[in-house]
Simulated assay, not measured.
Amino acid sequence: MSFEVLSREFRSTVGVGGRVTALFLLAASALAAAAPAPAREGKLLLTGGVSSIDGAAGGGLTPWALTGSYASVGQFGASAYLTRLRTQDYGLTGYGVATSFDERIELSLARQDFDTGRTGTALGLPGLRLKQDIFALKLRIAGDAVLDSDTWMPQIAIGLERKRLDAGGLAPTLHALGADDRGTDVYLSATKLLLAQGVLLNTTLRATKANQNGLLGFGGTARDRYKLLPEFSVAWLLRRNLAIGAEYRFKPDNLNPSLLGNGLAEDDWKDLFIAWAPGKNLSLTLAWVDLGRIVPAVVDRHQSGAYLSAQVAF
C-alpha cells in the first residue's frame, strides 16, 4: 500500500468521524494556546517519541520511559494525536491528548474506537463498535536519556493505564466469559538512547489482564490474574528528523480456552515503522502492523495492515 493511498484512507476516516476531527482540532488548538513558548526550545527532535495507541509517549505499540512533548526541565508541554489502523477485517481509530511537566511527569487521555467489521455481523451484532477510554500516568524515576547517552544508564519510568471498555451488545458475552469491563495495566520502562550512534532501545515490562489490549475486557474464566509480559522497541535515526524501527509486544491469552474453545486465542503484536518530524510541532508515523489472530473462531487468519498516526506537540 503506497503512502498516497494510505493518506487518502486516513483523510477519509477523519472526514467520516466528524466528532473525532472536531475534538482533535479543538484539543490541538487549545494545547497550542496553552503551552508556554520555551517548551519548543526543549528536547531534541523526536526524543519525546510519538503517541502510542494507548496515548502514552513511546512507539506505536508500546510506551517508552521518555515523557511526551518537547518540555524540558522546569517546563510544561502538551501533545495531541490522531491514529488510524486498518487490517483485513478490522479498523481502529484512536485519538487523545497528553501533558508533561519537568521531563518527569506525563498525564494522557486516549479514546479508541474499534470497528468489528464482519465479525460483529457473524456474532449477530452488525455494526458493532468497541470503545475504550484510557487514562494514563507516567513518572520518570531514574536516569536521563540525553544526558546519560554516553553511559550505560537508561532512563527509567513507571506507568499506569486505567482502561474502561464500552462493549455495546457484546458486553453480556464478555461477562459470561468472566471478563471485566474495567482494568488497570502497570508497567516499568527502560529507554536507552545511544546518541552518537543514533539508536534508541526500549524494554517495557507490563503487568496486565487486558484481552486484546482491553477491547475484549480484562481477565476471564480461563485466567483471571495479572501476567507480567515484556515489550521491546528499537529505533534508528537515519537523520535528525527521520527514524525507522521495530516493536514486539507479548500479549496474554486470558480467554483461551473458553466456552468457545480456542476461538478467542490472542497472539503477540509486532510492527515496523518510520517516523518523520518535519518540525518540532508535527510528527507523522507510518507502520506495517501484525496483530495476529483476533477472534479466530470467526476470522481464522492473521490481521496485518497499515497504521498511520499524526501528532502535534509543544
Rank of each mutant, 00 (worst) to 15 (best):
A246N: 10
G214V: 02
L229H: 00
N254Y: 07
N202A: 09
T203F: 00
D267S: 11
A277E: 10
L215D: 04
L282T: 15
D271K: 02
V234S: 07
K280N: 09
R223P: 07
Q197C: 03
D253F: 02
L205R: 00
A265P: 00
P230D: 09
N213M: 03
F232P: 02
D253L: 06
T208R: 04
K280V: 13
N262G: 05
K251V: 04
T208H: 02
L264C: 09
P257I: 01
N262A: 10
L229D: 04
F273V: 14
D268H: 02
F250A: 13
K280A: 05
F218G: 05
V199P: 04
Q212E: 11
F232H: 02
K227F: 04
N202Q: 13
D267N: 11
G263H: 00
G245L: 04
V234I: 15
S233A: 12
N211K: 03
A265V: 07
W269D: 08
P278I: 13
Q197V: 08
I244L: 15
V234D: 02
K270D: 14
K227D: 11
A196G: 09
D267T: 00
D268Q: 06
V199K: 01
D268C: 01
L229G: 05
N262Y: 00
F250Y: 11
G220I: 05
G217T: 00
L282F: 15
K251E: 15
W269M: 06
L229R: 08
K251N: 04
L201V: 12
L194T: 05
Y226F: 07
L255S: 01
R239M: 13
W236F: 14
L242F: 14
L284V: 15
N202I: 04
G261V: 01
L272N: 12
L259E: 13
A243L: 08
F218Y: 10
P278W: 08
G263A: 08
A275E: 15
T203W: 06
Q197A: 14
P278K: 10
N241K: 08
G263D: 06
T204D: 06
S283L: 11
W276T: 13
A235R: 11
Q212T: 09
R240A: 13
R223Y: 08
A243S: 15
L259N: 11
K251I: 10
L237Q: 12
L200S: 03
A275G: 13
A196R: 12
G279N: 14
R239K: 12
A210P: 01
G263C: 04
Q212R: 09
G263Q: 01
L216P: 08
S283W: 09
F218S: 04
K280L: 11
N202Y: 02
Y226P: 00
K209I: 12
N213V: 10
G217C: 05
G214N: 10
W269H: 03
N211P: 06
N241H: 12
